[in-house]
Design a protein around this nucleic acid. Structure first.
Lengths: 233, 233
DNA sequence: CTTCCATTCGGCACTCGGTGTCATTAGTAT
DNA sequence: ATACTAATGACACCGAGTGCCGAATGGAAG
């Protein structure tokens, strides 16, 4: 649900668990995902997303156009930064929660934690989310990111409920948590003084009373073959 | 949720309510949305979506490349056909339902009705949906269509609940119905012999017991300004 | 039949996002 | 210095989408 925070100028560890800090062989990268994301965001705000070209971004970053595409697979990915590593963190966080914690509480707190940012980051985050929720190209593209996010939620919910991750209940839960998060984000963007964590919390709590988990009492057809990915490869 | 059925070779009334059947002035269109959609679908199945170029589609349809873009704004829109008019129908259908019919029943039956197709159309519909749910480009693009669909559902739910359409509850309901519909569609695509209507019905009924409407008992903050469109202009 | 007019058609040139190829550059290790 | 590794960036190419404009079509008015 949330694009990667940018630790300006800092190299992001792209999920390199083993042997951190390798001997750094060969030529050094001349920039970073985070820096490009930052530069691009600036330009998007100045000139608009569609009016900003890759050439401009590359030029301002002092790299070649071709090089840009080695940092980001597409222009649409710029506002997201390194999202996958955030998902890894969320997955780990969820996994570390005590089994006694009810599903809805686990998800609520995890999502809120996942969307906590240092105060200095907040303005940037606001603008990123403003783009992601309002520029049609990005709205569309973000679906692919949301799919990964939903997958994380669905797998967690599925494990708690004891059903396959691609069955209806975890899928519906994942969708609904996404939906409520997005709704909360929209409120957040609408009100300059709003606090994201509080909006998320109240949104989820309101949902909890509607969505009180029925304890996996319903059919789930575990005989189904697995297809862990709800949409798109 | 469902792309327009193709009445082969028939001109689709593009939501022209007033003065139907105008005197037809000027040159006749040489093809139609439906025909192009049909031709393109064929090519997508033969060669894959990404491998099919607009030039090929235009060539097979016997029109110029430039002309193609007067029938469809983008390649991504081809599988959807004339979706807006279907939405109009669904909106009208919902509006005509008796107020006594509970919200969940109204939505369930409306969505099922909305996804009913003549038997001859079913194979085409299967292939369209297969593309829409599995080709990443289309998965992403479809978000924009889903947004319109959700809007219809949210507005209906909002009216029934007596809250603004952009408040949390109708938005969450709309998202969830979308999610469950998509989940049902995935099941449908996985099983050749499955009947879509039944899958939708059971999916929604399963949901109803989870999602038993709390009668708008929760806060909804009607003091908020309106922003009827949840994402994108 | 001819003229007028509305509307569609389609070619051309252009922009922009994205990719494959490959020689070049900047580092580390020997 | 030399060998090796990894990142860079120039070039060429493709496909989607758009602006422009003259040509084609067909009905209506003379």
């Amino acid at each position: 649900m949330t694009p990667s925070a940018e630790w300006k100028g800092e190299k992001v560890a792209t999920s390199n668990d083993p042997a951190t800090a390798a001997p750094r062989l060969g030529r050094q990268p001349s920039t970073s995902q985070a820096e490009l994301s930052h530069i691009a965001l600036q330009l998007f705000i100045e000139n608009g997303f569609d009016a900003t070209t890759i050439d401009e971004i590359a030029a301002r970053a002092g790299i070649g156009r071709r090089t840009f595409f080695r940092y980001f697979p597409s222009k649409n990915d710029l506002p997201w930064g390194d999202f996958e590593s955030l998902l890894d963190r969320m997955r780990a966080h969820l996994g570390s929660l005590p089994a006694e914690l009810p599903l809805v509480d686990a998800l609520r707190t995890a999502v809120i934690e996942f969307n906590r940012f240092p105060a200095a980051e907040v303005p940037y985050h606001r603008q990123r989310m403003d783009l992601l929720l309002n520029v049609p190209t990005l709205v569309a593209h973000s679906t692919l990111r949301y799919a990964s996010w939903r997958q994380v939620v669905a797998e967690f919910a599925a494990e708690r409920l004891g059903v396959p991750a691609d069955s209806l209940q975890p899928q519906a839960i994942a969708w609904t948590y996404l939906a409520v998060s997005l709704a909360a984000y929209e409120q957040w963007l609408k009100h300059d003084d709003a606090e994201l964590g509080e909006l998320l919390d109240s949104a989820f709590r309101m949902l909890d009373s509607t969505f009180a988990t029925p304890g996996a009492s319903h059919t789930s057809d575990p005989s189904d073959p697995q297809n862990p990915r709800p949409a798109g490869p």
